[in-house]
């Protein structure tokens, strides 16, 4: 059972920690690294990362369903995730991976 599948879809402070005093900085800098390019974003901690991913896909002319954004902690970013839910830190990198498909060599 996936926790994420059962997690609430709304943005905002969902974790118990999120209810604690607000982080020091409202915004964090996130680097989105493609294989060839690096794009930097500054985003609010509570903003869904969907906006960031859409912006990146639009900029790089990618289909959102064909790429996966992997956090520095190895999690795939879903549309409902925010930097808070993913415990992202300032200066973190989102690795952009293409769809992996395999059946044989």
């Amino acid at each position: 059972m996936s926790d994420r599948s059962h997690s609430p879809t709304g943005p905002g402070p969902q974790h118990p920690e999120a209810g604690e005093p607000a982080p020091v900085t409202e915004h964090i800098n996130i680097k989105v690294a493609d294989r060839d390019n690096e794009v930097f974003f500054k985003i609010k901690r509570s903003t869904p990362l969907k906006k960031l991913m859409d912006a990146f896909c639009q900029r790089q002319a990618l289909t959102p369903t064909q790429v996966r954004f992997i956090t520095s902690e190895g999690q795939k970013v879903t549309a409902v995730d925010t930097p808070d839910t993913l415990d992202m830190e300032d200066g973190d990198t989102l690795q952009v991976h293409q769809e992996q498909i395999g059946g044989s060599v």
Partner: peptide
């Protein structure tokens, strides 16, 4: 080709581990 993509594999593995 019926090649599985990473979503299927990762999601199933994640559900299995859960």
């Amino acid at each position: 080709k019926a090649w599985l993509n990473d979503q299927i594999v990762n999601t199933t593995m994640s559900l299995m581990m859960d």
